[in-house]
Simulated scan of single mutants.
Amino acid sequence: MNPRLLLALTPLLFTSMAVAVDCDNASNQATMNQCAAQQNAAADKELNALYQQITSRFKGNPDNKKLLVGAQRAWVAFRDAECKFSASGVEGGSVYPLIYSNCVTELTKARVQTFKNYLKCQEGDMSCPVPGG
């Protein structure tokens, strides 16, 4: 990349990061897309924190931890494929990032709830794969 172009663009990068986005009053597609991406990032952060809590409970059981890792990888592949399909009607359009991000966020929130349920397992519950903490 041309160093002069990079220097010319640098103020724009810092300016756009400093501007707070009012997601409650988003009035254009770019802002709505940015807000959807922020919501997605927040849901993903929560999912990752719960995933770490669950994996820590499998310290003495590497076989179950391996099953969880495989299940999570399969779930991520499903989520991404499902949302790509779900948003395919608007592929290439300016609304695509919004539709795709909303889909990913909703499926991630559902997985978050599943993980929360796993973490609430009662001792002796044979239907729960995660040992109590």
Rank of each mutant, 00 (worst) to 15 (best):
A87K: 03
C103Y: 15
L67P: 01
T108M: 06
Q38T: 12
R111E: 06
T105K: 03
A41D: 11
N2A: 08
G70Y: 00
L13P: 15
D22K: 01
K120S: 15
F78W: 06
D44R: 01
L47T: 02
L107Y: 13
N64Y: 01
L47W: 15
L67H: 03
N25K: 10
Q52Y: 13
A110D: 14
T31I: 13
C35S: 08
Q122M: 12
V76Y: 05
T15M: 10
P97Y: 13
R73T: 14
A18V: 11
T31C: 03
K109A: 03
A74I: 01
N28W: 06
A8Y: 11
K84G: 15
L107K: 11
A74L: 11
Q39R: 02
F14L: 07
Y100A: 09
L7W: 10
Q38C: 08
A26D: 07
L6R: 02
C128A: 03
A43Y: 11
E91R: 09
C23L: 04
A26S: 09
D63F: 00
S27D: 14
R4E: 11
E46R: 01
I99T: 15
A43S: 06
P11G: 07
S86N: 11
S88H: 11
Q38S: 14
T15Q: 08
G124N: 02
G60K: 01
Y118N: 09
S86Y: 14
K84H: 15
G60Y: 07
W75H: 05
T10F: 11
A18L: 14
Q113L: 08
P97A: 05
D44L: 04
E123H: 12
V69S: 00
S16Y: 09
M17E: 12
S86L: 06
C23A: 05
F78M: 04
C121V: 01
A87Y: 12
D125W: 04
G93Q: 08
G132R: 02
A18P: 14
K45R: 13
L12W: 13
A37N: 12
A49K: 02
S101K: 02
P62W: 00
K109P: 09
Y118W: 15
R79Y: 12
V90G: 14
N117Y: 07
K65T: 00
A37I: 10
V19Q: 06
G124S: 04
L9C: 09
C35E: 03
N102I: 03
D63K: 00
T31D: 13
N64I: 00
V95Y: 10
V112E: 05
E106H: 03
K109H: 14
D44I: 01
